[in-house]
């Protein structure tokens, strides 16, 4: 479903992603965990074609990102951004925000479908006519999720989807994401600094540090504490339960 091989991303003289490789099977949920600045968000943005200076291979559903058109790619994969306060157009009512990808791609009946999508993420009816500043952080993130699903992609890339939210809201959003993945048969790549979130959401994960992947694990290895790298252990220790 997703294949990333020997990905290198540079910003000017700095290499922010170095030799990153992983693959994700259809229907699987894959996590990238690491600190801010470890390059994990850059991997996601590059997969979506938001960075230009990179080399390596990225394929989504067999389509190489480099040579696939933007609109074709848009129907395969979409992204949910970290900051729900910055990812919605402040002057658009949210129904318009959700309908926008469909309008851009000339899909009919976008208003009706936007309403259905909003209902699916738990924002029914009159919510559609509110402006982002009238919504809470959790509600905004739901809108962003609805928008990402507007073109019915099979892959959702989630960049710290809950790190700007309070823990009780985080639980609601994570539950929503799990439900959508099950109901729609989605493939997830989730980026987070919180190992517990990744452990809860993902079947497999990679630990990133200083632009590299230091270790790739599955959930069982993580839960049994079978970690090889010191850094991964430190992360695990810091995410211990109360």
């Amino acid at each position: 479903m997703i294949r990333v091989e020997n990905l290198n991303v540079t910003f000017g003289a700095a290499t922010v992603v170095r030799d990153v490789s992983f693959s994700v099977a259809a229907g699987e949920s894959f996590g990238l965990v690491g600190e801010s600045g470890s390059g994990k968000s850059t991997v996601l943005r590059t997969m979506m074609g938001l960075n230009r200076s990179w080399n390596g291979t990225i394929e989504i559903e067999g389509a190489p990102v480099k040579s696939t058109g933007r609109k074709d790619l848009a129907r395969r994969a979409q992204m949910v951004f970290q900051d729900p306060y910055a990812s919605l157009h402040p002057r658009f009512v949210i129904a318009r925000t959700v309908a926008e990808p469909m309008r851009i791609n000339g899909i009919d009946n976008s208003e009706q479908r936007a309403r259905e999508l909003l209902e699916m993420v738990g924002l029914p009816g009159a919510f559609g006519f509110r402006f982002p500043h009238e919504l809470s952080g959790g509600q905004r993130q739901r809108v962003a999720i609805a928008r990402a699903l507007a073109l019915s992609p099979k892959v959702l890339l989630l960049d710290e989807p809950t790190s700007a939210l309070d823990v009780s809201i985080q639980a609601e959003v994570l539950n929503l994401l799990s439900r959508l993945r099950r109901d729609l048969g989605l493939t997830f790549v989730i980026v987070s600094h919180d190992l517990a979130v990744i452990a809860h959401m993902c079947d497999r994960l990679a630990v990133m540090r200083d632009a590299r992947i230091v270790e790739t694990l599955d959930r069982r290895q993580l839960q049994e504490g079978r970690l090889v790298e010191d850094y991964s252990r430190e992360l695990l220790a810091a995410s211990g339960d109360v």
Binding site: A171, N175, M201
Partner: peptide
Amino acid sequence: RGLLACLPSIQSTGDPLPVL
């Protein structure tokens, strides 16, 4: 108690988290 319960855990079984 609700806040504590809705934290995801490393030992998660993947079940939905309790919602506050």
